Simulated scan of single mutants.
Amino acid sequence: MANLTAAQVEADVDLLMGCLGANHREIPSAASLSKRSSILPLFAAVLSVLSTIIFYVSYYKDDASIAGFLNFFASEGWYLVAITAGIGLFVFLMTYNNQLTYLCLPSNLRNESLIISHIGKIVRKSVIIFCSLMILSSLLSGVSVWFALAVPALLLMLFVITSILVSAEINRLGAGLALEKISNLIKKI
């Protein structure tokens, strides 16, 4: 992001506030919010199942079979998927709230706003990096079970680090107070 002046940030915040105050808010459907919020947790759950399969095949090389995998999964393999599902539920609920705030802004405003587009770029880069690490960990789970356990840990780290980065950028831009007002306005709705 290029250097911005305080006047540009203030004008962008005024644009956001004006749009929300002028009854141009969009009310996203619960289905669209759920769909957008469940993408990463479902992706991590699929990678956990894949990690379990890769670990089973590498550990039981000669004796690997579908029936053997189902037995392994029923006895101890489900732990990893259950951990990922628990963390995924937490991430889903927190992401649902974030998506609600984001999708209340009209789509043309989301594209025009310097602050929102900059935050979107940060979130996209974080998601790409952490999803790549989750895929790599899943593929390496045949080497060690610790790589399989890295998938739910990376999902949780993605949420925490993205939240920290977004908060830091909002504060760096000096838009924290205005975005807090926007958030409070949306909560009142």
Results as ranks from 00 to 15, higher is better:
5 T>N: 06
134 M>V: 01
145 V>L: 15
11 A>D: 08
89 L>P: 09
157 M>E: 02
57 V>P: 05
142 G>I: 15
162 T>I: 00
181 K>N: 06
174 G>M: 01
160 V>N: 00
97 N>D: 09
31 A>K: 14
113 S>K: 11
161 I>H: 01
185 L>G: 04
23 N>T: 12
173 L>M: 06
173 L>Q: 05
89 L>E: 11
65 S>H: 15
176 G>I: 04
168 A>R: 11
161 I>L: 00
86 G>I: 11
151 V>T: 08
131 C>G: 15
43 F>D: 08
63 D>F: 14
79 Y>D: 07
68 G>M: 06
131 C>L: 09
6 A>P: 04
107 S>I: 09
89 L>V: 15
74 A>T: 00
162 T>L: 03
53 I>W: 05
135 I>L: 05
104 C>E: 09
90 F>P: 07
130 F>K: 01
95 T>Y: 01
155 L>H: 00
12 D>E: 14
84 T>H: 07
70 L>R: 01
70 L>K: 10
7 A>I: 06
181 K>T: 11
121 K>E: 08
185 L>Y: 03
36 R>W: 09
59 Y>S: 12
126 S>N: 06
69 F>G: 14
185 L>W: 05
27 I>R: 12
137 S>D: 03
11 A>M: 05
181 K>Q: 07
184 N>I: 15
187 K>L: 03
8 Q>A: 08
138 S>I: 04
106 P>Q: 05
141 S>W: 04
50 L>A: 14
133 L>G: 03
155 L>S: 00
93 L>T: 08
124 R>T: 10
84 T>A: 06
94 M>K: 13
128 I>L: 07
54 I>R: 13
90 F>K: 13
77 G>H: 02
35 K>I: 10
175 A>Q: 15
93 L>K: 12
128 I>C: 04
180 E>R: 05
27 I>W: 07
35 K>M: 04
16 L>E: 14
145 V>Y: 15
20 L>K: 09
125 K>M: 13
2 A>S: 13
164 I>A: 06
108 N>D: 05
152 P>Y: 03
58 S>T: 11
29 S>T: 14
141 S>I: 02
184 N>R: 07
177 L>M: 06
20 L>C: 14
154 L>G: 02
55 F>R: 09
47 L>K: 07
90 F>L: 12
134 M>F: 00
94 M>C: 14
9 V>Q: 03
85 A>Q: 02
2 A>L: 12
110 R>Q: 10
96 Y>P: 10
85 A>M: 06
101 T>F: 11
69 F>N: 08
178 A>V: 10
111 N>Q: 13
144 S>E: 13
143 V>Y: 11
185 L>Q: 03
49 V>N: 05
98 N>I: 02
182 I>D: 07
113 S>L: 11
37 S>E: 06
148 A>D: 05
53 I>K: 00
35 K>Y: 04
37 S>V: 03
85 A>S: 01
84 T>W: 01
170 I>T: 12
122 I>Q: 03
52 T>L: 04
147 F>N: 07
16 L>P: 10
120 G>P: 05
134 M>S: 00
